[in-house]
Computed example of a mutant assay.
Amino acid sequence: MKKAVVFLLVLVAAGAAAAGYFWWQLNQGAAKTEEISVKPLFYPMEKFVMSVSGDPTSRYLVLELTLVSHKADTIAALKEATPLLRNALVEHFARQSHLEVKLAMQQVSEVQSELLARFNQTLLDNKYEQQLDKVLITNIFIQ
């Protein structure tokens, strides 16, 4: 009988330990969830300067962008991912002429949407889980 009581106590203790472990794991998972800020968080990129083809000489495009997210983890990851995003900018504008860029910039919201899609795809392709909410063009200069 004593062995049965001891066995039952060991079984109850093991069950309590397992329940405590699972409760702790659930709370750890909840702590790791990404906090979403009510206000947008901003990441201003360095000025982007690129030559675009023009007749008969080359012209320049100067862009200043600010990336927007509501997640602090996304903003933190952008410093590391900036070279990838700058490369995506080069790829986006490399085949466009001065006139094409000038016409595109008349529809700034469309360019912002295109860049958002391109940046998010670039992040995804490079195994970043973070995604941007918006791309803001804060300054444009086309020479």
Rank of each mutant, 00 (worst) to 15 (best):
H92W: 08
L61F: 02
V135M: 03
A14C: 07
W23R: 13
Q106I: 06
A94K: 04
H70V: 02
Q131S: 08
T57C: 06
L9H: 02
Q112C: 02
Q106S: 07
A94E: 04
F22E: 15
W24M: 13
L11A: 09
L78R: 07
L85Q: 01
Y43N: 11
A88C: 00
E80C: 02
Q107C: 08
K102D: 01
R118A: 09
V62R: 03
P44K: 06
Y60D: 04
S37M: 06
T82L: 11
L9G: 11
A94R: 06
E34G: 12
L9Y: 12
L26D: 15
F48W: 07
S53Y: 05
A14E: 06
V12Q: 06
E64R: 15
Q25H: 02
A76L: 13
E129W: 05
E110L: 06
S69W: 05
D125L: 02
N87R: 09
T33I: 12
Q28R: 06
A31W: 10
A18T: 03
V68P: 01
V90P: 08
L115I: 13
T33G: 09
A13L: 14
S51L: 07
A19C: 02
K127W: 10
L103A: 13
R118G: 01
S53I: 01
D125Q: 08
L67M: 04
P40G: 01
E46G: 12
G29K: 15
L89A: 02
V38H: 08
R86E: 14
V38M: 07
S109K: 14
L84P: 03
A104T: 12
V90R: 12
L99M: 01
K79R: 05
A76E: 11
E100C: 05
A72Q: 15
S113G: 00
G29T: 11
E35C: 09
H98G: 04
S113M: 07
V52Y: 00
G29Q: 15
Q121T: 10
V135S: 00
Q96Y: 11
D133P: 04
L123R: 02
T57A: 13
N87G: 05
M50K: 08
S37C: 09
A104N: 03
D133W: 03
L116G: 10
N120V: 00
S53H: 00
K79T: 15
S37G: 08
Q121W: 03
V52H: 01
A18R: 01
L132V: 04
M45K: 09
W23Q: 14
V52T: 00
T66K: 05
L115A: 04
N27C: 05
K102P: 00
K134F: 08
R118W: 07
Q112M: 04
S58D: 14
F22V: 14
A16L: 14
E100V: 05
